[in-house]
Amino acid sequence: MGEVLHVRDYRAYFHTRRGIVKAVDGLNFNLSAGETLGIVGESGSGKSVFLLSLLGLLPKPPLRIESGSAQFGGMDLVTASEDTMRSIRGNKIAMIFQEPMTSLNPYLKIGTQLIEPLMIHRNKTKDEAFKIVKGSLLKVGIGDPDRALNAYPHEFSGGMRQRVMIAMALTTHPEILIADEPTTALDVTVQAQILELLKSIQKETGMAVILVTHDLGVVAGVADRCLVMYAGKLFEQGSVDDIFYRSQHPYTHALLKSTPRLDKALAALPSIAGTAPDLSKLGPGCPFDARCEYVKEECRNSFPTAKRTEEHESFCHLEKLP
């Protein structure tokens, strides 16, 4: 399948009065059509900043894209003009967020909000747009679209609101859907419904999905490939099997081991000591050095280069994870 997004050496820093915060510091990956890429990381790992800055949704300043490129459909999203970005956002690249309540306008009816992308990006008339939107609502499992179109967001539960957000994202047939923690605010039974829905829609439309989450279980269930980020750095990437069974990075390894499992009665849960570093006070070395059990002298002095076996890429000074 064709490649739809090609990100090289992406660096996004915040320039603040207290210093430079390296929120995203060197990200490389490719995304193919029909593929689901999971981006895993804890809070402050830079996963959300990356996606928001990619779509030009963060104010510059304080943010500055220091280097890198993001090739999408023959152009570079990093250097694209604001007009170009506006024609891409919510059109060829759509996004859904964690909090479906805050991403819908509480003053406007669902219908008014849903037809907006079609009227802006596809020059549809109101009537045409409403017709298309009804189809989208049915597709996301909202059985009574006419009632839904006339409802306000507060009349819907969290799961239904997320369905509305997905319907809105789908109206323009995006090539990439970015889902930033789409199920974190939902209950597990509803999460299962939404993830199933995303999978079936993806199968039908062949769009690529970037799924950002801190839940390793969700990634294991829906992603094809996976990036692991920590403190703005890319630590490891590969197929989900590479990451979950053949991880070469001490952080990924420790993260997996410290996750409680539903299917196993664990006698002990090995935890990662310490806390994530302050992003404005990072040295030249690996940001995980203070918490890593295999730390060596060179880890403090330089960030490692990639070790690659086919698709699997890991950034660690260790020759091999013991």
Partner: peptide
């Protein structure tokens, strides 16, 4: 059955009981 397990092979082979509604 709805709780995802961080184990891709297991996830692929699981059958989920997906409840309808909320």
């Amino acid at each position: 059955s709805a709780v995802p397990i961080p184990d891709p092979k297991l996830e692929r082979s699981r059958t989920r009981i997906v409840l309808t509604g909320e």
